[in-house]
């Protein structure tokens, strides 16, 4: 079990979490949903170790490699789609993941030339190339058409543990979510 205890996160005057506690399963798909500004992304950043909370503890993640597909793709624009993924793993893995997500033809295209949806898929592929043990996904379906949503969802379901942030509660069905947390 992954446990978050007494989490407090403040950004200047705004308190996002005030002694909040969560229990997350070790496997499956967990969905965090709710309206904007309730701390979904903040929780992911805390779990990834990218944000130090004002107080509170996270346990159950030590020894597990955590990857993160950010809400904005955050690709290295000056590198190719394949490079962006291969830099965090291997070239073979990059090629295979690009194929899975229907991006084989774009593998040698510079990231800056890709469309929003394509960038989103490259970002997803990068997260899975780095680790499919614990994958944190912030709005992974943004900009994806129906076909690519299914491809992305299939990949997300293959993770040992995926924690997905979404505005859309219907995404839970698409992902076969084992747990839903409303924030």
């Amino acid at each position: 079990m992954i446990t978050v205890r007494d989490l407090t996160v403040r950004f200047e005057a705004k308190t996002v979490f005030d002694h909040a506690s969560f229990d997350l399963p070790e496997e499956g798909v967990v969905m965090l949903y709710g309206v904007s500004g309730k701390g979904k992304t903040t929780l992911l950043r805390v779990l990834a170790g990218l944000l130090r909370p004002d107080s509170g503890t996270v346990s159950g993640l030590s020894g597990r490699t955590v990857s993160f597909a950010f809400q904005e793709p955050r690709l290295l624009d000056w590198r190719t789609a394949e490079d962006n993924i291969a830099l965090v793993s291997s070239r073979e893995k990059a090629i295979s993941l690009l194929e899975t997500l229907g991006l084989s033809e774009e593998r040698n295209a510079l990231a800056k030339t890709l469309s929003g949806g394509q960038k989103q898929r490259v970002s997803l592929a990068r997260a899975f190339a780095y680790s499919d043990n614990v994958v944190l996904l912030d709005e992974p379906f943004t900009g994806l058409d129906e076909e690519n949503r299914f491809k992305a969802a299939a990949l997300i379901r293959s993770a040992k543990l995926a924690i997905v942030v979404s505005h859309d509660e219907d995404d839970a069905a698409l992902l076969d979510a084992t747990k839903k947390i409303m924030l």
Binding site: S67, F70, R126
Partner: peptide, 11 residues
């Protein structure tokens, strides 16, 4: 800063 944060996680 967003790329830097990504870099902190992956590299």
């Amino acid at each position: 800063p967003k790329l830097s944060e990504m870099g902190r996680l992956y590299f």
